[in-house]
């Protein structure tokens, strides 16, 4: 996808947008892929994000921030072109603890887009193969530009 100039331009623009989000900067989010209602965002392990000091496992709350951002990015990148989106509902299932000192990568996809709501599914993985660390289902509000509603 790096070779597709249109995708590359979208990625660059989306990265610029992500860089404007203070929480994304604080958690060092990196946008890896975006387009067609699908987004991949990753986050490095950081000792400030530890939720369980006995094990060094990252707090679920850091993963929810990553999942929420990734779902929002996927919704906004949908081909139908929503211009605004906000989280209505986000459910996260924590399948297993994330390995300490490993990058966590979230992938979110629009499962269904309606005129006012986007339904999304997302997974988060660490660097180990196999089972994801967490999965999410979400509903986001979407607003389309006025002229598209004719």
């Amino acid at each position: 996808m790096e070779t597709d100039p249109q995708m590359a331009a979208l990625l660059a623009r989306a990265r610029q947008f992500l860089a404007m989000i203070p929480l994304g900067q604080a958690l060092a989010f990196r946008l890896d892929q975006i387009g067609g209602g699908r987004a991949v965002i990753s986050m490095p392990w950081d000792e400030r994000l530890i939720g369980d000091p006995r094990t060094g496992v990252i707090h679920g709350g850091a993963i929810s921030a990553l999942m929420d951002t990734c779902c929002g990015a996927a919704a906004i990148s949908h081909p139908e072109g929503p211009e605004m989106t906000a989280t209505l509902d986000l459910r996260i299932d924590y399948m297993r603890p994330a390995a300490a000192r490993q990058r966590i990568t979230a992938t979110a996809e629009v499962f269904r887009m309606t005129r006012s709501v986007a339904f999304l599914r997302a997974t988060a993985c660490d660097e180990q193969e196999g089972q994801p660390v967490a999965t999410a289902t979400a509903a986001f509000t979407v607003d389309f530009p006025k002229e598209d509603r004719t």
Binding site: M20, I21, P22, L23, G24, Q25, A26, H59, G60, G61, A62, S64, A65, L66, M67, D68, T69, A86, T87, L90
Partner: peptide, 20 residues
Amino acid sequence: DKLIGNPLLPALHGGATSAF
């Protein structure tokens, strides 16, 4: 400031409030 998710509104990041 670092809890902001939408700098235009501005609004708290949903990820920050759900983590809270």
